[in-house]
């Protein structure tokens, strides 16, 4: 009679019915005289059968319709048409066969490299500030770099989240029960990402305001006084509420930043 160690790797294929005749006979013979192995097989088969009978119920939920539409749109795009600045997915019915079959030019080959090089420079510049500028400036520079990087990534991934999904990820990722500020519907939500800053994870919510990228970062510590910093071509409005620090990053004019900051502060209070 084969011992338990020899039978062990055969148990799962035996339960699943994917085993040769000779091995099956060996397992059958062993199970007749080995109650512990017989129990193992019994337990494994019970769970397998249970999952199979509940499979149709387990096979829910279905993916959201919007996700189906976005993924279908990927198939309809030429491979080199995915780095457009517009980060919302729309089917492109006007794309022609000529567009699709167009060979990849040196420009399109260099574009991702140029983007990567720009990001390296921006991030490098952000670290240089660490040596020369105040801590708020470092914070603003790093978040401005992150703002550019995440919107560039979003240009490729084309994510577009609903407010409820973002609120759910804030709760599951950070433990923050919050209502997402949409500033009287003038902000269009793009999505949310967990990003790294310092030694921890921060929430990055991406919007468009009048078509322009805008980011709201939330840090889980109240570490800054209220101020507005201009850095790397962006403005960063910093403020604290309770035990959280908020940073609004955008390229919009100062007056617009002040107005948006006041609106968001009122909504987040």
């Amino acid at each position: 009679m084969p011992d338990c160690k020899i039978i062990d790797p055969l148990v799962t294929p035996y339960v699943d019915g994917h085993i040769g005749d000779a091995d099956r006979r060996a397992v059958d013979e062993h199970l007749r005289v080995c109650p512990p192995c017989d129990s193992r097989v019994h337990a494994e088969r019970t769970v397998r059968d249970l999952i199979h009978t509940r499979k149709s119920a387990l096979a829910s939920p279905c993916a959201p319709d919007a996700l189906h539409a976005r993924c279908a749109a990927f198939a309809r795009r030429a491979p080199d048409a995915r780095l457009h600045s517009d980060d919302r997915l729309k089917p492109r019915p006007w794309t022609t066969a000529r567009d699709v079959s167009r060979p990849i030019t040196w420009r399109s080959r260099l574009a991702p490299l140029a983007l990567a090089a720009s990001l390296v420079l921006i991030v490098g510049a952000a670290f240089l500030y660490q040596l020369t500028a105040s801590s708020s400036r470092v914070l603003a520079a790093e978040l401005a770099a992150d703002h550019v990087k995440c919107f560039a990534l979003n240009g490729v991934l084309r994510t577009h989240d609903e407010p409820a999904a973002v609120e759910s990820s804030m709760l599951s990722g950070f433990g923050w029960q919050m209502r997402l500020p949409l500033a009287a519907n003038e902000l269009e939500l793009v999505g949310a990402r967990p990003c790294l800053y310092g030694e921890g994870k921060i929430a990055h919510i991406m919007y468009r305001h009048r078509g322009e990228p805008m980011s709201l970062f939330m840090l889980p510590k109240a570490i800054r006084r209220q101020e507005l910093v201009q850095v790397l071509g962006h403005k960063a409005a910093i403020w604290c509420v309770g035990d959280r620090t908020f940073v609004l990053v955008t390229r919009e004019p100062r007056s617009e930043v002040d107005r948006l900051t006041s609106t968001l502060q009122a909504q987040l209070r």
Binding site: L58, A59, S60, P61, C62, A63, P64, L67, H68, R70, C71, A72, F74, A75, R82, V156, L157, R158, T159, D161, A165, V166, S168, S169, S172, G173, G191, A192
Partner: peptide, 30 residues
């Protein structure tokens, strides 16, 4: 695309967060 629902469910098991699962499925199809 016929596999999208089952990919999404598996992505949900992997990430635990619907928004992350959608992100993962999108990147997979891309």
């Amino acid at each position: 695309l016929a596999s999208l629902d089952s990919l999404y469910r598996t992505a949900l098991r992997l990430t635990g967060v619907p928004a992350d699962a959608e992100d993962l499925v999108q990147e997979t199809y891309l």
